[in-house]
Nucleic acid binder design. Structure first.
Length: 521
RNA sequence: GGGCCCGUAGCUCAAUUGGUUAGAGCCGACGGCUCAUAACCGUCUGGUUGGGGGUUCAAGUCCCUCCGGGCCUACCA
């Protein structure tokens, strides 16, 4: 038996200086959907996420709260982890940059870059922003009315001179451009790639990669007075999670990563700095960096009775995990910006989940329960209509795989729900309830075909709505080991005569809670 | 200043990458059905594809320009 194809994907590691917001949730649930998809498609998936716990901000926040940085990291990292759990994320490993294994990986990566001659000591002077952990040209800064000098994003800067190690990023310009050229889908979507290319074409300056102004970080091996710059530390997590530097670790077989899922705000670090570090250290480059867009709350009024639903935990509590996941993945083109609001979430999830697939399953399965002794009915010969809808369902696997090869999550869902809509039309057009009185065999056939389509749709929906999909598969008595994509198509057809449990509604409608307080925001 | 992306029905988006009368969902109106989660099916309303010009037998798609929105990057001090 051939070894399964490996698939390694990551989220960025989150900075647990504050509480998780909807952007973190979006990244995590999207990455999870991809992970589940590839797993169901037979791959040996490794899904890494975690928290990035070093830096001055952590140290300062900890001081403000009267605790050590490690205590703060422990406390807040747990919150992020709980968020991912609340979203039903199936990460295989939750990395924390304060762990020894990560210190080892960073240290070794640094050593290799140094050995390659790409690191040198020099002095950096300029306006430094603690919040951004970055220097700014004086021209970029501005003194505000309050007399405080700030960088463009508004954080205060102070004049700083420090000795710092530099990475020879400037010498990687041509190699990076050659890599983008040879791998047109290294950065997706296309617009992001264009930005990256034009940025690199504009010339690269060497990058300051160490700090002496604080000590909450990973020490530079040859010079412990320095700690590593945030991005050397943070980006390296992706190889730490694959066992680096122990290349005999079985996990190392997962590197290079198939895709780093990130938000578009951190494209440059992932598409320019990270590959340059790896080239320098002689480590293979990840195959793809996929940048998703931002989500905006378009001033939709959230109901007072449900409170501030923008918080990820509240979203899940208010609408449900499946609903939250489905909404963001179906409504927003992955890679583009999107917006969300109460009404949009309710409309989308009620229409697609409750009305379309939930109701289709319920109406067909309850007919089976009532008219077929609760067993999968035996179909007669198939008509053209039967064959057409079955063929549509059977054809989905190829279609969705094509979409997901480019992380086109929305397209994958579009395709699946097109079939759901077809199935509703089919069911209504064939009128099994009428055939019940005139032609039982025909009724059985229609119910069989519909249930079979529901089976395939449920299997395909698992990555996005794992709970509701599981419920549907349970209603169809589909064996646990027949729920992956290998069971799609003709080979996995429902077995006639199998007993089915009494169905109840999967994907309940969201109904507005009666405004008990009599008013709204 | 240079560069990139976008603007299609009230809303969210399609259109095999120049090829017939620009499609679908949601919303709305009307009708149907009763298996079903106030669900489902059908019909209809709704567009000079932001404006203008050009290339072509043919433009939502290519070129120019203007308007509007977003983003990357650089400069001016």
């Amino acid at each position: 038996m051939a070894e399964r194809q490996k698939f390694y994907l990551t989220t960025p590691i989150f900075y647990p200086n504050g509480v998780p917001h909807i952007g973190h949730a979006y990244t995590a649930l999207a990455t999870d959907a991809i992970a589940r998809f590839e797993r169901l498609d037979g791959k040996d998936v490794r899904f890494l996420t975690g928290t990035d716990e070093h830096g001055l901000k952590m140290k300062q926040t900890a001081a403000e709260e009267g605790m050590s940085p490690q205590e703060l990291a422990d406390r807040n990292s747990a919150v992020f982890r709980r968020m991912e759990d609340a979203l039903d994320c199936t990460y295989d490993d939750y990395i924390r940059t304060t762990e020894p294994r990560h210190h080892e990986a960073c240290t070794e990566l640094w050593r290799r870059m140094e050995a390659a001659g790409d690191i040198y000591l020099s002095k950096y002077t300029g306006w430094y922003s603690v919040r951004q952990e970055a220097y700014f040209d004086e021209k970029e800064t501005e003194v505000g009315d309050d007399g405080v000098r700030r960088e463009p994003l508004g954080s205060p800067v102070e004049w700083t001179e420090e000795e710092t190690y530099f990475f020879r990023l400037s010498s990687f310009q041509d190699k990076l451009l050659a890599h983008y050229e040879a791998n047109p889908e290294f950065v997706l979507p296309r617009e992001r790639r264009n930005e990256v290319v034009s940025f690199v074409e504009g010339g690269l300056q060497d990058l300051s990669i160490s700090r002496t102004s604080f000590d909450w970080g990973i020490k530079v091996p040859s010079d412990p007075g320095h700690v590593m710059y945030v991005w050397v530390d943070a980006l390296t997590n992706y190889i730490t999670g694959a066992g680096f530097p122990d290349e005999s670790n079985p996990l190392w077989g997962h590197w290079p990563a198939d895709v780093h899922i990130i938000g578009k705000d951190i494209v440059r670090f992932h598409a320019v700095y990270w590959p340059a570090f790896l080239m320098s250290a002689g480590v293979e480059l990840p195959k793809r960096v996929f940048a998703h867009g931002f989500l905006f709350n378009r001033g939709e009024k959230m109901s007072k009775s449900v409170g501030n639903v923008v918080d990820p935990f509240n979203l899940v509590e208010t609408y449900g995990v499946d609903q939250t996941r489905y909404f963001f993945l179906r409504e927003v083109g992955f890679g583009q910006d999107g917006s969300y609001g109460h009404e949009a979430i309710v409309n989308r999830t009620n229409a697609d989940l409750a009305n379309d697939i939930g109701n289709l399953a319920q109406r067909s399965l309850s007919m089976i329960a009532k008219n077929c002794e609760g067993k999968v009915p035996a179909p007669g010969s198939f008509t053209d209509a039967d064959k057409a809808i079955l063929a549509a369902a059977d054809g989905l696997h190829v279609l969705v795989r094509q979409a997901m090869d480019r992380q086109a999550i929305k397209h994958y869902l579009d395709a699946v729900w097109d079939v759901v809509a077809d199935a509703n039309r089919y069911f209504a057009g064939e009128e099994p309830w009428a055939k019940r009185k005139t032609d039982l065999e025909r009724m059985n056939t229609i119910l069989y075909v519909t249930a079979e389509v529901v089976r395939q749709v449920a299997i395909l929906a698992q990555p996005v709505v794992p709970n509701g999909a599981k419920q549907l598969l349970d209603f169809l008595s589909v064996a646990e080991d027949a729920r992956d994509f290998a069971a799609l198509g003709e080979t996995g057809r429902l077995e006639v005569g199998v007993e089915l449990p009494k169905p109840t509604g999967a994907f309940p409608r969201y109904v507005e809670p009666e405004a008990a307080d009599g008013g709204k925001a």
